[in-house]
Design a protein around this nucleic acid. Structure first.
Lengths: 131, 131
DNA sequence: CTAACCGTACTATAAGTGATAGTACAATTA
DNA sequence: TAATTGTACTATCACTTATAGTACGGTTAG
């Protein structure tokens, strides 16, 4: 389910893009499966169809979906791989953030604890959904 | 030294704010010490004085500096403490990023390695500057 | 005291972005 | 055939960013 905050400083179409990316990453919208139509989702979210069109165009530009005029819009075959590539690139951000925090006086052990805590949570999530 | 990218999508005044924050955090501009004047720095950076004024106003709003009309603008006494408070808040972002990466399939050990690597770098930096 | 500098306030303009509304058209599907 | 799909286009409105120019009062150095 998508949630739009119209009062946010981050543009609506960006909110849609990032949330749809997450839903695709989580498998909510699987490969080759159809995404909601422009008009239907725009109406549901209470936003302008043009705004959603912009979001979909961006998602398409990034390779996460493909459109078939007249038929609909579908999650691309390689969306999952793309997601992993993006995650790899984010490791750089992760390292930079760690360095910044360390320089600001945060203890390294505290950061390690954060990661271990996240690992525990991720592991439990994995157990729940090991279908 | 501040570097402004006028072609960037991030506003000039935000670039100034974030870079000055980092310079203050690094001790480049120490507590109680004067910051460059609005007109002087604006000329040096090749930007409009009003734009720099906006950046300084934001920096002041955040508590990192205080102004004394007629005299100048100075780094506030508690700037360093503020910086540490900000770092603490960033730990939340750090944990969230770790969770996101784990969910995307990155191994926990890899994240731990990133942190340890950053710790090594930070330690060496500390040795260099232990005055 | 005076001149030069400081921060600040104000108006005005220009450009860019985000979001909306409305219309239209070709392709696909039931 | 009728309905739905994606897409294109114009137009408008609001907001933000950045600029230019002017002005005023406080502070400081000569």
């Amino acid at each position: 389910m998508l949630i739009i905050d119209k009062l946010s400083r981050v543009p609506v179409y960006e909110q849609v893009v990032s949330q749809l990316e997450k839903l695709i990453a989580m498998g909510e919208y699987a490969s080759e499966q159809p995404l909601p139509s422009v008009r239907a989702l725009a109406t549901q979210l209470g936003i302008n169809p043009n705004t959603l069109q912009k979001a979909y165009a961006e998602l398409e530009r990034r390779g996460f979906c493909v459109s078939s005029p007249g038929s609909g819009r579908f999650v691309s075959r390689h969306a999952q791989e793309l997601m992993e590539v993006r995650a790899r690139k984010k490791i750089g951000d992760f390292s930079a953030l760690a360095a910044e925090l360390l320089q600001a006086g945060v203890e390294g052990e505290e950061l390690l604890a954060c990661v271990r805590r996240a690992m525990d949570v991720a592991e439990k999530k994995g157990e729940e959904t090991h279908d």
